[in-house]
Design a protein around this nucleic acid. Structure first.
Lengths: 360, 360
DNA sequence: AGCCGTCATGTAATCGTTTACATTGAGCTT
DNA sequence: AAGCTCAATGTAAACGATTACATGACGGCT
């Protein structure tokens, strides 16, 4: 263990009494503040000699531009607000990481807005954004950000560039980065059918969720492809939590005639469901196949490991951040990006049980 | 599905052409800008009549103070930087949520700094903080934030209030909010011993991690309590990831003489380890008991469910944020807070296997 | 030689607040 | 009635950058 000087343990203490300002640099370099500013923003507009003197002066006094002054004058914050339904969900963490990475590279900071199911917070974040504290926002929720119930956001004044992720907003005129949820769900349903299943249950996410609607549509597409009639009794409610999956699992376990496969709209629910089935003595995949969606880290680690749809989460975040920055810096931005998914077959799915198998 | 006007889908468009300024409010209310400013910051310092007129004017023009101007003048940003090792870890998400919650209530915003193992980023975040973009910082990493290798942070000028969480920094003079990792690990080790185990393995976190050192000490304390000699062969390296746990599990499975219990320094590793053991046909808890640390959500959902130490993660975040705000607003701040942990016994631990049992 | 465009630089206005200091008048004291 | 205090308000100077506009020097062209 290294020795530490408690007085300087933060690394943030000491040094000059007051921070150097642009004027200090200018004086030291023998130029005007305008030249210093230009040397920083447009080096090519300043003579090499002046530039060198300015850089030397900056290094000497350890000048760091004051962001508040910059923002006040230029109206640019180099900050992005990221609005998400909840921080408390592994699904978002990797996306966030992708966002953070990309923003960091471009010199932007990230401010997190955790909605946490509260409309209150939504309004406050919207006000925050439109008060000019950020240059733009990334929306990971499918709602119409900043709209009040009466359809008129009173705090909204300035137009803030937005990019939506994950839960595409239908008809919205803002760029959207998404995964083809519908096609992926269709593919998974088809795969479950190909195992010999005729009774394929579906555990839903929240009904008001745009992304969920897409997945559900994909499920129905897949049934149609396999010429299986849609059966509302095989659709169970859920809300993307482990608990909801557990509840759905209990419901299924309690049934007399069970589905041969259950497609859960996300991995957490699939895991909760498998847990309930195990408690009820139902074997996966011998008695029932279970599939999820998202491919979170734990999906490979549960017993049995979970068949699921892999989404390029980090990529999703990166791309969204890049598109937003393009937008912010006046470059043409892709209006809509679709990223590919992948069907990951693991141990939680297998041939349909005999009795549930499609007759010849 | 509700009908949307695509033109106003963002909720952020339209309205007045330019945002109202304090001068507009002042003119409308028939007072000076100073009075408006005071009515906002210290309502009791203006007459009730003036206050009423100001409030009416604010409502009428939809005035929102410009944060950059405010910050420039007052040197307060009402922003806090949260530095963490990685966003990509469920352990942090609940802490973050607690932080976000508390900060939000106090009217502060949160900026995320994901270190992602890069010293580069650390320096940049430190520069960011000391450039005055935040009022203070919350450290979820055990490092000395902002110190460069040579011990002198060149970008560091101003002293930024800090509060450390999770990985306490020994000898540091900043407030620390922590869990008694050592006592908790001791307790768990004692519990495993009480099941009849003499050979209790330990899977480590990263060696340079302060919190890890505490847990390891607790493990040794626990061995001593049970009068079990410390055996270095029973200590396996790890880094808090699922993969590291899986590797440790393979190592253990390959041994001729196996431990009766394995205490993993976090839940992810315990889950990876159980996965490997299962693949090797070793039964948990009949052949080996496995315990984790943290009690992440998934701990209750794996098969078998995991015995672990519950940490009040959200509370941890909340408390840290509150202490920091106290510090920022000049109130006396608690120099050190210790939160209680809880031993959660689930299905992954059970009586030691016969042959491993302590003689008489 | 005179004119003009270009380049490098400087001067000073500007961004929108907060707040130190000044001013006013009302109410009290002596 | 003069003097004093205090509350309420106003005036104007910061805060620290960016940037429109002005300036001067230089070189090329006619």
């Amino acid at each position: 263990m290294e020795e530490l000087d408690p007085a300087d343990v933060t690394g943030l203490s000491a040094g000059e009494v007051r921070a150097a300002r642009i004027g200090d640099v200018a004086r030291l370099a023998g130029v005007s503040t305008a030249t210093v500013s230009r040397a920083l923003a447009n080096p090519e507009r300043v003579s090499p000699e002046a530039r060198a003197r300015v850089n030397a002066a900056i290094a000497q006094v350890g000048y760091v531009p004051n962001p508040a002054a910059r923002t006040l004058r230029s109206q640019k914050t180099r900050m992005v607000l990221v609005v998400l339904p909840t921080l408390d969900n592994v699904f978002f963490s990797k996306i966030l990481r992708g966002i953070e990475e990309a923003l960091f590279e471009k010199g932007y900071g990230m401010i997190i807005g955790d909605l946490d199911g509260s409309p209150d917070k939504e309004a406050r974040f919207a006000a925050f954004a439109s008060a000019g504290r950020v240059d733009g926002a990334l929306l990971l929720n499918g709602h119409l950000f900043g709209q009040t119930r009466d359809g008129r956001g009173p705090a909204m004044r300035t137009s803030v560039p937005l990019v939506a992720l994950c839960e595409a907003i239908p008809g919205a005129s803002i760029p959207q980065i998404e995964v083809d949820n519908r096609a992926a769900a269709r593919r998974m349903t088809g795969y479950l059918a190909s195992l010999g299943n005729r009774r394929i249950a579906y555990v839903c996410g929240p009904a008001d969720n745009v992304l969920e609607r897409e997945r559900f549509r994909g499920y129905r597409d897949g049934l149609r492809d396999a010429e299986i009639a849609f059966d509302p009794d095989l659709v169970l409610p859920g809300d993307y939590t482990l608990e909801a999956g557990a509840v759905a699992g209990q419901a299924i376990a309690a049934r007399k005639v069970r589905p041969g496969a259950v497609f859960c709209s996300n991995d957490e629910m699939a895991m909760g469901l498998m847990r309930s089935l195990a408690s009820a003595g139902i074997r996966v995949p011998q008695d029932i196949s279970v599939a999820g969606f998202d491919d979170i880290e734990f999906a490979a680690m549960v017993e049995p490991s979970l068949t699921t749809i892999r989404q390029p989460r980090r990529e999703l975040g990166r791309t969204a951040a890049e598109v937003l920055v393009d937008l912010l810096e006046g470059r043409p931005a892709a209006p809509r990006v679709r990223l590919k998914t992948e069907l990951v077959v693991r141990a939680s799915t297998g041939p349909a049980p005999r009795k549930a198998r499609r007759p010849a």
